[in-house]
């Protein structure tokens, strides 16, 4: 089976906007919605809402990732919400 770092950009891109569970080498698990996967380092950026209702951003370094499983699929609404928080500049330029 392909190592996580050797996956294709297509494979990484297909995970964007979905809720996933990332497993690392120490068998720790991280859950959240995929904002992106860095094509250089294979690092995964996950978003999750904290109990305080603040948004938590977590970067899991690509070297530590062993497995990523999709838990729930995202919608256009969840994609729009992510962009409005993390890509505000681009949202403005597109709407101008």
């Amino acid at each position: 089976m392909l190592q996580w770092r050797d996956r294709s950009p297509q494979h990484w891109h297909e995970l964007v906007n979905h809720e996933v569970c990332v497993t690392n080498r120490d068998q720790q698990r991280f859950e959240g919605r995929v904002f992106t996967v860095d094509p250089v380092s294979a690092s995964v950026v996950l978003l999750s809402v904290q109990e305080s209702e603040r948004l938590s951003v977590r970067v899991i370094l690509g070297h530590a990732v062993t497995d990523v499983q999709i838990l729930r699929r995202g919608t256009e609404e969840t994609e729009r919400q992510m962009k409005s928080v993390l890509l505000p500049d681009r949202a403005q330029s597109l709407s101008a």
Partner: peptide, 20 residues
């Protein structure tokens, strides 16, 4: 197409680092 996907993923990652 692969290059376009890489660019989009990378831009999002760099913006995450900027935010951090």
């Amino acid at each position: 197409e692969e290059q376009r996907l890489r660019a989009e993923l990378r831009e999002r990652f760099l913006r995450t680092l900027l935010l951090m």
